[in-house]
Structures are given as C-alpha cells and as structure tokens.
C-alpha cells in the first residue's frame, strides 16, 4: 500500500527537518519554503494533508489557507496550521472561543509536540 502524502509549507528548515524526520517512515513527505511554492506543490504533489506555517515571506499561511479552503477541489485537504506565536493579531487560536476563526482544521503552536502532531495526522488521514 502506498504511503499517504503530507506537504510541509514552512520557511524554517529546522522545523521542516524535524517534521520530515518524524513522519518519513509512515508517510510520503515533501516540503515548500513559502506560500507560492506551497500552492504549486499542492497541485503537483497532491498531498492528503498539509502542515502550514502561518508567518512566511511572500505569500503567508493565512493567504494559502484561505486559498485552499475556498477552492472546491482542495477544500477537503486537512490543514494543520503551525506558528511560533501563541497569540496572533490579538486572537488566541488555541482557545475554544476562537475555534474556527482561522480556516485551518487544527492549530498547533511551536515548539512542536510530536505526540500531538502524530495524533492529529492520524485522526485526519490515518
């Protein structure tokens, strides 16, 4: 059985390396270092799940997420948003009260918690 595909859109190579090392045994992993490259890879790599950094140069994660969630063909790809910021633009994405304000399926803050990341991936794509 072929491995499920995960695309990491993240400009920090240290974060990309750590996620890729964590997932590569069980998943087919590719990465892109900014939003524009990420959207190109969504089209070519056809991931089943996307891990998306929110603050990146050029096109940021907010724009990428909105673009994905408003595209009929892509809106069902689960998106896990990542950020170093526990609070952004005055909104705490980790709180229940703000759930859904960011159009990603789940929001995780950095540093990564490997157990939580693996569990969320399994919950969404198995």
């Amino acid at each position: 059985m072929s491995k499920k595909k995960i695309l990491i859109i993240e400009d920090d190579p240290a974060i990309v390396d750590s996620i890729a090392a964590l997932l590569k045994t069980d998943y087919d992993v590719d990465s892109a270092k900014n939003g524009n490259e990420g959207l190109e890879k969504v089209a070519s790599f056809k991931p089943e799940l996307i891990i998306l950094d929110l603050l990146m140069p050029e096109k940021d994660g907010f724009d990428v997420c909105k673009r994905l969630k408003t595209d009929e063909a892509l809106k069902n790809i689960p998106v896990i948003a990542l950020s170093s910021f526990t609070e952004l633009y005055g909104m705490s994405f980790s709180g229940e009260d703000t759930k859904g304000m960011l159009p990603s399926d789940i929001y995780l803050s950095k540093p990564l918690d490997p157990k939580t990341l693996l569990r969320e991936i399994k919950d969404h794509i198995g």
Partner: peptide, 18 residues
C-alpha cells in the same frame, strides 16, 4: 521565541525516540 521554538522542536522530536 522563533529560534528557541525551532531548537526545542528538534530536541522534542529527538527525545520522542521516533
């Protein structure tokens, strides 16, 4: 926070034993 979170992410993944 950014560099510390990145360093910590690497170390947490290593510490997970995965």
């Amino acid at each position: 926070r950014s560099p510390i979170a990145a360093a910590q992410s690497c170390l947490r993944v290593l510490a997970s034993g995965a």
